[in-house]
Amino acid sequence: MTAHSINHLGELENESIYVMREVAAQFENPALLFSGGKDSIVMVHLARKAFWPQKIPFTLAHIDTGHNFKETLEYRDNLVEKLGARLVVGSVQSSIDEGRATEESGFNASRNVLQTVTLLDTIEKYKFDVAIGGGRRDEEKARAKERFFSHRDEFGQWDPKNQRPELWNIFNGKKRMGEHFRVFPLSNWTEMDVWQYIYQENIEMPSLYFTHRRKAFYRDGVWLAWAPFMKLKPTETVVEDDFRCRTIGDITCTGLSVSKANSLVDIIREIAATRVTERGGRFDDRRSEAAMEDRKREGYF
């Protein structure tokens, strides 16, 4: 009776598109948080599929730490032009200049945590009532507890012990004035699913994900990209080798892998063989056992 069967990628795609359409139906002013990383690129692709031939009904919002890979910004600007979408940029530098956020100091200084301030300010400034994020439950143990529709109070805080039950595919996006939602359409995807989907759909990716020559240094078990503003410890030296990014975030905390993968199939093979989680390369998560939970409570992505 069935003309075709649905594989797991199809199942995930159907679910994510359903979630995106619920967002468009239940909220008035949605933003899609776009970082230029693979998860947000897949989200944009899903949004195009969900609403075609209409333009995507979301504003793209980029929280810019100022410490970007230049490739990320190029990719972002091309995409925005292709989609004809509206882009707003929240700048961490401005938050610092306005005294709303304080720059960290020391060797592990990162603007990653500061993004929370800028993110919440951006949501408030543009009156977004929902922000769609690319967070996945397989990334990290606090994220494993996250809902598809995640309620935030008027301070942008997440209360993990008091979340709304989420049953079947019924999503409750009702909220009071000043509150907002975070929605995670990729909740059930794993890193492997994301890459398999990119391969299946033949989605164009930023060059950073593929092997390239780069200057980097090794710190506490992680390769970090070198940039002129980064402080090195006396024992650390900058070397040049073939690297690729496994995740793309702020340059100060994005881990690199030594890799010669230069095609999607190479990347998939590499991930299948990898014995370390992708966030194992994210310096920001290594700060403490509950680093992610603490940041999320305050309103992080």
Binding site: N7, H8, M192, Q196, Q200, I268, A272, A273
Partner: peptide
């Protein structure tokens, strides 16, 4: 590893 990068992976059930 080998199975994950084959077409078979694309036809897994959930």
């Amino acid at each position: 590893e080998s199975d994950f990068s084959s077409e078979a992976y694309l036809n897994m059930q959930l």
